[in-house]
Amino acid sequence: MKITSVTTGGPCWAEIGTADPPAAKRFYAELFGWRPETDPREEAGGYTVMMLDARPAAGLTQLFAPDQPTAWTVSFATDDADAAAGRVTSAGGRVMLEPMEVLDLGRFSVVADTSGAVFALWQARAFAGAGVLNEPGSLGWVELLTRNTETAKAFYMRVFGWSVTPGETYTQWGLAGADFGGMLAMDDRFPPELPPHWVPYFAVADVDLTAERAAGLGGEVLMAPTSVPEGPRIAVLRDPQGAAFGVYLAGTEG
């Protein structure tokens, strides 16, 4: 990822909703060196910001519905959450949570693209989002897994104005010449019941060691460390509660 600060239209935050917040805090603190800071205000509902040194790196919250799976959600920055939610619906997507105020922090909406892949919109007020990007222990890449890549290209170009750089097997998303994410077509390797979804990737200093550490902490290695041709070394992991995420070697993104 060439974007090193929050940019309108780009990824600004990754948040995990989990059935076991204390266990998730311990797992990610051990894996990435994050320090949990839980908002003490009752109206915050126990929301926790995972800090990397003194900078916010990711969010953690409890599940709010019995059928809600433990999973990571990627948020994209917008200057106007209501207008962005309107573009989502006009492009064929769905608004799952209408834009709402989050204390004094910002305005927030949960939406889904035409295939059902869920993501969030964030209009910053007091809280801009990640205070660190693309450094070890921080968000550095976001990836859409979908079964209809052509429809997805049209949708995200319309909603965010992203550039699209297609390859033989992988498409990259960008803004103003800076790539920040990609798209992978879901083929027969993926179970038919697995829905399209976004996956956050976090930069690490050592992919192999991080994968080994995740397994030792009770997680699972979904894709073993692999060196992508003309790309970074990556791995896909799952935490003990079932949330999937990726890691890649810092400094080799884009």
Rank of each mutant, 00 (worst) to 15 (best):
M186I: 09
G86T: 12
A250C: 03
V236S: 04
Y156G: 09
V111H: 04
A124M: 05
V199L: 15
E135G: 05
G131T: 08
R107S: 05
G86V: 11
A19M: 06
L237G: 13
D79T: 10
P191T: 03
T73P: 12
W34R: 06
A203P: 00
R35Q: 14
A211N: 08
P225S: 04
Q68S: 13
P195D: 09
P195N: 09
A203H: 00
G129T: 08
S138V: 00
Q241S: 15
P196E: 11
G161R: 04
S5E: 15
A126R: 15
L144E: 09
V102D: 11
A235I: 05
E43W: 03
G161K: 05
G45L: 01
A14S: 13
G131I: 04
V110G: 11
R107E: 04
V6R: 02
T151D: 15
K2W: 01
T146C: 11
D39N: 14
P166I: 02
M96A: 11
L97E: 13
D39I: 00
P69W: 02
G174H: 04
S90N: 14
L175S: 12
W34A: 09
Y201M: 02
G129I: 02
D80H: 13
D39K: 03
E212A: 13
E212F: 00
M51S: 10
A85H: 06
L139C: 04
A81Q: 01
A215M: 09
E143G: 09
P66W: 01
A71Y: 02
D188R: 11
R238V: 07
F27L: 10
A211T: 06
I234M: 15
E168R: 13
S109Q: 03
G251P: 08
V111E: 03
P200Y: 01
G9I: 02
T7K: 09
T48D: 07
T146F: 08
V132I: 12
G59L: 05
A120W: 00
E220S: 14
D82T: 14
D39C: 03
G181P: 02
G93T: 09
P22M: 10
E42M: 03
T7P: 02
G140N: 00
A44I: 02
L175G: 05
T73A: 11
P232G: 08
A58D: 02
L133N: 01
V204Y: 04
P69Y: 03
R238A: 15
P22L: 09
T89G: 05
G92S: 07
L52E: 05
L97C: 05
